[in-house]
Lab assay of single mutants.
Amino acid sequence: PQECLLLEPGLNEIMANSLDYNERLWAWESWRSEVGKQLRPLYEEYVVLKNEMARANHYEDYGDYWRGDYEVNGVDGYDYSRGQLIEDVEHTFEEIKPLYEHLHAYVRAKLMNAYPSYISPIGCLPAHLLGDMWGRFWTNLYSLTVPFGQKPNIDVTDAMVDQAWDAQRIFKEAEKFFVSVGLPNMTQGFWENSMLTDPGNVQKAVCHPTAWDLGKGDFRILMCTKVTMDDFLTAHHEMGHIQYDMAYAAQPFLLRNGANEGFHEAVGEIMSLSAATPKHLKSIGLLSPDFQEDNETEINFLLKQALTIVGTLPFTYMLEKWRWMVFKGEIPKDQWMKKWWEMKREIVGVVEPVPHDETYCDPASLFHVSNDYSFIRYYTRTLYQFQFQEALCQAAKHEGPLHKCDISNSTEAGQKLFNMLRLGKSEPWTLALENVVGAKNMNVRPLLNYFEPLFTWLKDQNKNSFVGWSTDWSPYADQSIKVRISLKSALGDKAYEWNDNEMYLFRSSVAY
């Protein structure tokens, strides 16, 4: 590609939709070469300064400071330590791993069909083939991996386009969902002041979706909304933040926050679980009234959910574990990228498509890292959202599997949720969690119950496949010279610098 592309739109479109291996590689590498390399010296300084700040406030390091958001002291029976968070994340991840490994094996087999000769049947997945710029969410792999393609499509993007949905309609439908469970409408100022579409040439905007509580009843969302099912669900997520903000607005200023950061992320995700169900999509006209649910549509639905929800958990866990180790000084600065990709291979089963030396800073190419967000919130929120969903479905008197529950129109479920939201940070999160779900610790069981039918199906699908991955295989081993030459021509001086062995191999191949 010759034109100058922004991340959004532009590069993200390539990473969402392109099936051209080399075009995807160009976009993936260009973003890291342009952005990651510029941020490397800044990120090194950032780590030093943030650690100084944390230690001045009596924390061991900046990662310890972040984990302090979960700490509860002096509340008998509800205490929770920063170290306990690490333990809980690690042991819940071990419980999730078998499901993830089977999802990984299934996706690898489907990617082998889409990119023959580029995928190893026992290796890691190349990082640039996973549906977005970071491989964070695998949602866009659904069209390549759908188990029963002859069934009606449960990705309702086409239906939204056919019905001329726009950003306003998407957010109005999200608002209807919250109102149906007894939560309030958005304010008039929300509709007047939010930026729900890309302003285009009028001004440059950071398009990463964010929710804003500017105080004095001024709530806004910034999002360059596209007419897709993914953005339909994202709208519910962002509006969930606003509902939380509005619910605790009466609290004293210092207590106007989520019980912990994971709670804030979980609220909209609960609504997304219901909004994505075929039952709900039928009720708002995005699935045909004669759409029939059966075992095959159930597996299609659960796989689509797993690509988004299960596929991202190792990504989140590994990223934050790397940062915690960096802040603690356990990874020397001259080994940041080496350790990043070692951990990516070992924990996530994902491999870099071309080698990256220590001039890169791949983590900082992600919005949340370069903008100083702690990231473990996206792991804890996933466990909380299924715990909350299970409890709210019980309040809504849902009968049947958890993945079929739609809590819309249940004011009982809405009241149970609101009673927790309005507390803000005035009560320990362990107590707030217990008030809703009857337990005071994160628990992976509801998530595993939700995906149980899919897990059973995946194990059957993978019975003749290798489950797990070898960390030795690299996608650039066989194609390295071709890849390096093409990237050198595209990126010039910003391309990865060849070492002596690679230059010798190149000259030998040319001479041959």
Rank of each mutant, 00 (worst) to 15 (best):
V206R: 07
I309K: 08
H237L: 10
E261Y: 08
L233D: 04
Y373M: 12
R256S: 08
Q305N: 05
F375Y: 11
Q251E: 03
L214R: 00
F253P: 03
M229C: 10
M229H: 08
G215P: 01
F301L: 10
D218C: 00
K304F: 12
Q188L: 08
S374Y: 08
K216I: 00
F219R: 02
T210F: 06
M246H: 05
E192N: 04
L233W: 08
T187Q: 13
G217Y: 02
E265K: 12
T139Q: 09
G217D: 03
T139L: 09
K304T: 11
M246C: 05
K304V: 09
T139P: 06
L214D: 00
Y378E: 08
N193A: 05
L214Q: 08
S272C: 11
N193H: 15
T234V: 10
R220G: 01
W212G: 03
D213P: 06
T210M: 10
H241R: 14
T210D: 10
H208V: 12
D218V: 01
H208Y: 08
R220S: 01
V206A: 07
T210A: 10
E261T: 08
P252K: 04
Q188T: 13
T187Y: 04
T210Q: 05
I309M: 10
R136C: 07
F301I: 10
G217F: 01
R256K: 15
M246V: 12
T234F: 10
R377Q: 13
G189L: 03
S272F: 07
Y373F: 11
M229Q: 08
V206C: 08
K304R: 12
R377C: 09
D213A: 06
Q305P: 03
T234R: 10
R256C: 09
N140D: 11
G217K: 00
H237S: 12
R136I: 11
N257M: 11
T139R: 08
T234H: 11
D372M: 02
W212R: 04
G215Y: 14
N153T: 12
T210W: 07
T187I: 08
T187V: 08
L233N: 07
G217S: 02
F367C: 06
D230S: 12
K216Q: 02
E192F: 06
D213E: 11
E265C: 07
M246N: 00
T234Y: 05
Q305K: 10
E261S: 09
N193P: 03
H368L: 08
S374W: 05
G189Q: 01
A249M: 12
P252L: 03
P252T: 07
D218R: 00
N140T: 08
D245T: 12
T139H: 07
Y378A: 08
N257V: 10
L214H: 13
R381I: 04
F137G: 07
R220Y: 00
G217H: 04
Q188S: 07
Y373C: 09
Y378R: 09
K216R: 03
H237R: 11
H237C: 12
H368T: 07
M246D: 03
P209D: 05
T308V: 08
I309C: 12
F253Y: 04
S374K: 08
E192H: 03
F367G: 11
R256Q: 10
K304G: 10
Q305T: 09
N140I: 05
F367T: 10
Q251M: 05
P252H: 07
K216A: 00
N193C: 01
G189C: 00
Y373T: 06
Q188R: 07
H264R: 09
D372W: 01
F219I: 01
F137Q: 12
H264A: 08
